[in-house]
Design a protein around this nucleic acid. Sequence first.
RNA 1: GGGCGCGUAGCUCAGUUGGCAGAGCGCUACCAUGACAUGGUAGAGGUCCCGGGUUCGAGCCCCGUCGCGCCCACCA
Length: 701
Amino acid sequence: MSAVPEKPTLDNVESKWIESWDQNGTYAFDRSATRANVFAVDTPPPTVSGSLHMGHVFSYTHTDTVARFWRMRGKSVFYPMGWDDNGLPTERRVQNYFGVSCDPSVAYVANFQPPFRGDPPKDHRAVPVSRPNFIELCEELTAQDEKIFEDLFRRLGLSVDWSLLYTTIEDRSRRTSQRAFLRNLARNEAYTQEAPTLWDVDFRTAVAQAELEDRDRPGAYHTLAFHKSDGSGDILIDTTRPELLAACVALIAHPDDPRYQPMFGKMVRTPLFNVEVPVVAHPLAQIDKGTGIAMCCTFGDLTDVIWWRELQLPMRPIISRDGRIVADAPNGLTDVAGLAHYATLVGKSAKQAQTAIAEMLTTSGEMIGATRPITHPVKFYEKGDRPLEIVTSRQWYIRNGGRDVALRDALLARGAGLAWHPDHMRHRYSNWVEGLNGDWLVSRQRWFGVPVPVWYPLDADGETLHDSPLVPDESRLPIDPSTDAPVGYTEDQRGKPGGFIGDPDVMDTWATSSLTPQIASRWEDDNSVFDQVFPFDVRPQGHDIIRTWLFATMVRSHFEHNSAPWANATLSGWILDPDRKKMSKSKGNVVTPLDLFDQYGSDAVRYWAVSARPGVDTAFSEDQMKVGRKLATKLLNVTKFVLGFGDADESVAPTEPIDIAMLHRLAGVVDETTAAFEAFDYARVLERTESFFWWFCDDYV
RNA sequence: GGGCGCGUAGCUCAGUUGGCAGAGCGCUACCAUGACAUGGUAGAGGUCCCGGGUUCGAGCCCCGUCGCGCCCACCA
């Protein structure tokens, strides 16, 4: 029994096994297995924009225990890893790390050296670099980060087949992403449209409904006097955004509101700008809010968009894509004094413009009384710092049921057909799908992402023909329309009348990560793998991204394969700090996983992770890790003691009642834990096994 | 406003067709040489949030209240 250590110790056990697993291909996926004998995991690719934290350690351990279980059951386990390195988080990290910013108008510099590698001083002004240089820096930094990620996950002991590793920016992922998009386009599941969309003025990109969050912000009601055109007096409206006054296109009240019914169809003049706008009725106006009549601007909020569309109001945008008041006064503003007022606002941010216009309104006597401070929810991009504006722009959309009841019902049925663990998470999905108010906006005005793979012809006048995009053959993918030319054109026709231009946008990160099953399984690149694993057995992920990642993956699979992408979804909980608050970097209470591995050992950290029931938010507890370490030591010691009796004669059936009783009890534990693992309840498995182990040590041994 | 989860020992939590209230940590006392002191033995500690109902019997099922948390909607 050379396996019995002389002095039981946990020292070096991790490095020894990491090396052994790697050399022996212990976790290599068996390419000869049939689908029936495969267990496939759609592993979440962590975002490469910083570091892995305890939340990753926690949830990835859960999945690993399930993967190991199925491997023990004889399945060939398809357990890939991926790095989600395309997209905004990486861009932001690259800007902060190297002290640069992307400027597509700058020329490429070979062998460019960034001003800093880590921690630029606070007063450093970002150096503008070309898009290709910026992407090189993205690739350099993500490669560094990914090495650190891989080391950490290996140290944690994940039984991943590292030969299946993918990144979401690599050629194969871009090819998969573009292929899926082109097929959506060919089937009319993707379309382009010029429309008002929510817009982040700092990132200067459109954002999707799924990426919004509300934040409570201080605001103030300003009461403004509009003047009836027939000279019979004023109408007072309350607004929190007086800076949009020049963008006002109508006043709107509820059709049943007797106070304003006499005014419907009549005209009023705006304060300061003296622009004539109609008073109209619409049921979305709330009788009990403010003065009961609202000003509709293009655009202050999503209700304005609805009013503008349904009441066919004119467009008078005054907010530019960088969030400042545009230079050109809107249509209809012709009054000399009004133009003078407008000129003082040009170039100001929304906030500055609000202050300025409030002063002007006070001076003109058209603001009634003092402002009344309120706190109200304002829409933000979840990664953004300033409120979203609404600007009109051309964007790409993928249908998701937000504007189509039949499709929505089909996607609801897909969700209902999934096995959710824990089961109540299914409500998050149906709740979200039922509340969709538009299609999925997938284009982003950014750089480090998968390009929208189309070009547009230019007519004889150089106008872009958006409705007849030129698409590449799938065999050419991946392409970059900003450097590749469409078939039938040459590069020197780019931007010329009668020539072509490339679509300038990239796709949202989710538009690529929604294809992780297809990427990991080499869909269309090697369909023998795809056929072996699809639909996958399980998608493990956080419950906070049901509306994004899970739903988007469902949409793509529904369209492409007429199938759900997996049979099960497991949703992990959050790690809470001991004060029951969600752990966050800003609170400075994040513990690094490596420190804990060093202090307690990977197994002890895994023990803590597995003690939490599926889907339950769990307190971070070093005490549990101490317990785990003691348990591991005890396991070694009892093993040494038992094996010290020498080899058992396996041909002899046990006859002692105490042995038979122990084996009987063990068989019961095996049955129960098998059932628990089949239901993804690793925590029950641990509890039952540990409980048996203590009984085994205390009473049997 | 709509949806979901949670509330059990000081702490973190189990409690699986309703059947003697549990574990770990912490606390108290004792135990020192042959698997294990990273351990062992013993012990204290409970209004199972509250109110009502069903039942022979409720931590568990039903109705309601309160508290905590999350998701969505609400932006004049």
